[in-house]
Amino acid sequence: MLKIADKEFSSRLLLGTGKYPSFEIQKQAVAVSEAEILTFAVRRMDIFEASQPNFLEQLDLTRYTLLPNTAGASTAEEAVHIARLAKASGLCDMVKVEIIGCSRSLLPDPVETLRATEMLLEEGFIVLPYTSDDVVLARRLCELGVHAIMPGAAPIGSGRGILNPLNLSLIIEQSNVPVIIDAGVGSPKDAAFAMELGADGVLLNTAVSEAANPVMMAEAMKLAIEAGRLGYKAGRMPVRDYGVASSPTEGLVTN
């Protein structure tokens, strides 16, 4: 079970809800993924346009935990404001702190992320900061009392996979709260790798929503995360420099 604050989840896949080709495909992808935590963004409603369908309103909210993000914020104060708005919906008390510090790479601003996290924890939120793979920053966030830490594998939406497995391993090793690899996952191999490193979960969006077949990819990601987790728990064999025969070297029937 994945335990975040006092909530328990049987799925270790957290799914983003942006950029799907259609609501119908998205609904199927969400169902097949078996994700229990879904991320959302908070935005001004387009009230002057004809009533537009809203994905969240089509969900059975008793089955999902909403994880609103603070995307769009560039300062701690803006992030706190977005988190308060989300909480005022009465639907969630968790928040993904996401404060972008570089518009080109979409990498998070470490200083503002740390500040916002501290402020939100003080207000009683369940806080899951999206952070870079910086080991010391991750430790500082843990020391503040976050409920999970979410280091990125690679820039958001880049699909480049895990760029720094060593840093992620060090973050996982030192963390006393769940580590969820967030952002940059491109394929099932990346998700499995994250879990094999010992991550507690994976948060992804574009890898599914931008796949040629998002529903099939949602299932692939689910299976990859399960496989990676099992592999981690099973304990992998050592890596060697030279070949070691699998077949007996005695009783050979050749000369």
Partner: peptide
């Protein structure tokens, strides 16, 4: 100021600035 649900009976005054916000897809 964010209005909690039980404060929606708040009267609207001239020149109030009102924002209606919701959840949209995001990662």
């Amino acid at each position: 100021e964010i209005l909690q649900k039980d404060h929606y009976d708040t009267p609207i005054k001239d020149r109030d600035q009102i924002e209606i916000i919701h959840f949209v897809g995001g990662g």
